[in-house]
Each structure stands twice: as structure tokens, then as C-alpha cells.
Nucleic acid binder design. Structure first.
Lengths: 138, 138
DNA sequence: ATCGATGCAAACCTTTTGCACCTCT
DNA sequence: AGAGGTGCAAAAGGTTTGCATCGAT
């Protein structure tokens, strides 16, 4: 975690306990929590934590390139400390959001350049379906 | 537009001038306007139009399957009367949102099923890049 | 007369901002 | 003392809801 300290120091930012806790939590989970979910979780360890600090911190983490923001079509954003560009899949039954790993979709950018006159730099891919657990319950 | 009338009548909904104007506007444009943009446009013809009616109407149109909602990562939703499932591309310079037409990405659902244990039903694909017009200005 | 729709205002939710206080150096 | 951070409360968007009025059948 020395690396983290350096990243912060380089920008004259402080790696406070709150910031560290939020980043560590995001690194530890694959649940793609919203700000509210982060707040509820961290509050257990930091009773004085405020929602404003969560928002300010995720904004900082995004600017540092340590976290990415996703929007699966809900009315809020979710956060992911896995900053590799990877698709997400949403269970339309239980609402869970999973990563899709090991699937290479980078070639899609080139495909899209062939169909448009855009210079394509990135993409966000969201799939929707029913997760294995919810399939069992049918 | 008789078809529209029928769709509304079947659900005991009324095709009011406001609703008609909003749908017609959405059908006529490829700009993927937000509720606010729709409101500003329609207000020229319907000075009494309220933003609440825009929101209520797009909600109704979505439930009728006549309009789809997209979120390119802004803090609001945009609306598209092209309900075919097609990808969108956002110009990161001017903010424009274009359709990507004629590109078949339906096979991606199958690809994703092969990588996950989800039963995949649909997807939303957003690409980001620089549009032809903005490329010229560089 | 009935039933849904409109449009205003208020409420709601997520996110941002202002500001006083705090921490660390 | 100085610089950035926290956390409260207030503000700021975007969106929804309640309700009285309107309009068409």
C-alpha cells in the first residue's frame, strides 16, 4: 500500500484513514457499491463518516485513476476499483452487478470505427440477464 | 399515425396533443434529447407544457414500448424513439450522441453466456470517441 | 358525469457545495 | 501557522408525486 501513499503524495493529497478505508473496501468487493452502500459499510468502522466525504473521496479516487464509475441504468452511480475496461452484467431479477472477466471486447472499438466516422477511444458495455442463483429459483 | 391511436386506445390511454407532440419530436430527431431538451423544444408549440408532463409522457411511452431510455454516463437520462436495440456513441468533445446503425452486435449476448453463467437477454453498448466534425477542428 | 391527462407546486433522491472545525506537519 | 480534509447542513440538479382543474367521451 506504499504505492497508494506515493500516488497521493505526488498530487499533494493526503491519504487519510477515511480515504484509505473507502479505497480498501472498493478493492475488496466485487459488488460495485453505490455511494450510499459504501457509506453504510464504512460507517461501521468510522461512525463519524459522512456521505459527503464518500462522494468527495470517490471523486478524488476517480481523478487519480484508481476507481471507475459505472451506470447500469439505475438512478445512481456505482463504483469499481477494478479500472481495467471490462463489461458488466446486471441480474434483472436480484439486481446484482457482476464483472465479465476474461472476455476480450477491445476489438469492438475498431468495429465501430468501421461503421462510423468517429475516432473511438473507449466503451462501456452492460449486459442484462438472469444470474445462476436466480435461475435456480425459477 | 392511426397505429399510435390504437396502441393508446388499447390501454385506455389518451393520445393527447402533448403526448403526440413529444412522440413526434422524438421520432423526428436523432439527437437523443433529455427531458429538459424535449421540454424546451415542445414549449415553443405548447407554451403551457410542463416539465412534469414531459416526464410522465416519456414514462408512458417507455411502458408502451415506443421509446427507450439511455444513459451515456451523464447525470440524466436521454430518450430514443428508435427502439431497436442499437449501440450509441458519444463524442467526448462536443457531447453529441449518435446511433450506431447497421452494426450487428446481437451475437455478443451469446459470447457473454459463454463467459458467465448468466442467461443473457439484452445489452446496452456505449462507445466514446471524437466525432468527424470535432476531428476537423483539431 | 366519468375518467384519464395536464400543469403547477411540493416532495424526493442523488450528488455537490459552503463553511467552520480539525489534523498533521 | 498553513494546507488540505472532514462532516454537518444547505443547495443544487433531475425526477416523481399530489392534487385541483381541464377536456373528451
Amino acid at each position: 500500500m506504499d504505492k497508494l501513499t506515493n500516488i497521493f503524495r505526488e498530487k499533494n493529497l493526503k491519504l487519510t484513514p477515511q480515504r484509505y478505508a473507502i479505497y480498501k473496501y472498493l478493492k475488496s468487493t466485487k459488488s460495485h457499491p453505490s455511494a450510499e452502500m459504501i457509506y453504510d459499510t464504512i460507517k461501521a468502522d468510522f461512525p463519524t463518516m459522512s456521505l459527503a466525504t464518500v462522494y468527495k473521496t470517490v471523486r478524488t479516487l476517480i481523478e487519480l485513476g484508481l476507481v471507475q464509475e459505472i451506470n447500469v441504468g439505475e438512478d445512481n452511480f456505482r463504483f469499481d476499483a477494478n479500472v481495467d475496461n471490462h463489461p458488466h452484467i446486471v441480474c434483472i431479477t436480484c439486481g446484482k452487478v457482476d464483472d465479465i472477466e476474461d472476455a476480450a471486447f477491445e476489438h469492438l472499438n475498431q468495429d465501430v470505427e468501421n461503421f462510423t466516422n468517429y475516432k473511438v477511444s473507449t466503451h462501456k458495455l452492460y449486459f442484462y440477464g438472469i444470474c445462476p442463483e436466480c435461475q435456480k429459483e425459477l
